[in-house]
């Protein structure tokens, strides 16, 4: 399986296991949107550490997953962006602001706790 999707309480954790093709990224987007509705998830964590490259298509897709998830009632946090991947991503003229990020899974979980507890303060 190229993406492992686990449920943990109100959250879904999608852990990408291998590099994905564009079609697989779009499938993941649809799959996550559907699962969020089905389990009424309030938070989504996507671990992208296995992606060696996040190009403009993947970056934009992650943004659209986050926007779709919010419309479906869940906040999204991306985790596992490597230093060199981050350096490449900021070269594109993309609006990356919709992407909330955290250094690792623990940080992502505590950020989601904060976001879904209604404190609503946006720091990361």
């Amino acid at each position: 399986m190229s993406v492992a999707i686990l449920r943990q309480g109100d959250y879904l954790i999608a852990s990408i296991q291998v590099d994905l093709s564009d079609s697989q990224v779009l499938e993941l987007r649809d799959e996550l949107s559907e699962r969020i509705g089905r389990v009424r998830a309030r938070g989504l964590i996507i671990d992208v550490a296995a992606l060696d490259v996040i190009d403009s298509f993947v970056a934009r897709s992650l943004g659209s997953i986050a926007i779709t998830a919010r419309l479906r009632g869940a906040e999204t946090v991306i985790t596992g962006i490597e230093p060199d991947v981050a350096i490449a991503m900021v070269q594109f003229d993309l609006d990356l602001a919709p992407l909330r990020t955290a250094l690792d899974l623990d940080e992502a979980l505590s950020l989601l706790d904060r976001l879904t507890q209604g404190a609503g303060e946006d720091e990361a």
């Binding site: 962006i81 981050a86 991503m89 990020t101 250094l103």
Partner: peptide, 11 residues
């Protein structure tokens, strides 16, 4: 860009 890249890493 550095500030943005740091943010992408979660800092």
């Amino acid at each position: 860009q550095t500030v943005e890249a740091a943010r992408l890493m979660g800092a």
